[in-house]
Amino acid sequence: MLESRLEQADLLKKVVEAISGLVNDCNFDCNDSGIALQAMDNSHVALVSMMLKAEAFSPYRCDRNIALGINLSSLTKVLRAAQSSDILTLKAEDAPDVVNLVFESSEKDRISEYDLKLMDIDQEHLGIPETEYAASISMPSNEFQRICKDLMNISESVSIECTKEGVKFAAAGDIGTGSVTLKQHSNVDKPEQSVEIDLSEPVALSFSLKYLVNFTKATSLASKVKLSLSNEVPLLVEYELSGGNSSYLRFYLAPKIGD
């Protein structure tokens, strides 16, 4: 059986909110190392991969592999009943028909309990190759969101060019062109404001802004976002979850190729 207790319901609320624009139904795969999720959007352009490590919960118990097939809009409806600061406990039997969600207010004076019906989802998993990316950029997550939203007003595509000079996001559309260039800089007082660029060779790729803007729904989960790029492979956009236990929310986006 599964029994996992999250100190802050907010974490799951935000994860579900961040991925529900891309994915309708997906399996939450539970095993002794934690709860994982992998799903593509309907048009197979983007892939979401989430890992909530057992260490993100206290306590966490899962004796055997359990797949929780969940409709995300149904889960959203149930999670609306949870206050952000509630303690959230997820429970399921082996081979379950329902997942049980319990929300406890931090003052412990209210306990809400919901059973969400599960679906049988026949989901194929993709093998994501270990990649040494040519460029990785760590930047404030709200800055990345801002850039994507601003450039979406110009075009549906953005080119991301990373050189030793910095990283340039550029868009060209009917009304004109726009670009934002970021250079590496460290902010000692506010490390979350730093931009770090790790480059082994220059990269230039184009991506759909509609998807990138969708990914940035995860912005409130982490102060930093990491972009990893290599020529001719999908972009990786990564948000760290729940500080320091290597839980993550990753989005992969297939590039636009040719002209």
């Binding site: 352009v45 993709l126 093998g127 184009s206 999908p234 297939a254 590039p255 002209d259």
Partner: peptide, 14 residues
């Protein structure tokens, strides 16, 4: 611009 590629062209089914 360019043509949108598919994630399936990069990541194989397990």
């Amino acid at each position: 611009g360019g043509k949108q590629s598919s994630i399936l062209g990069f990541f194989g089914k397990k």
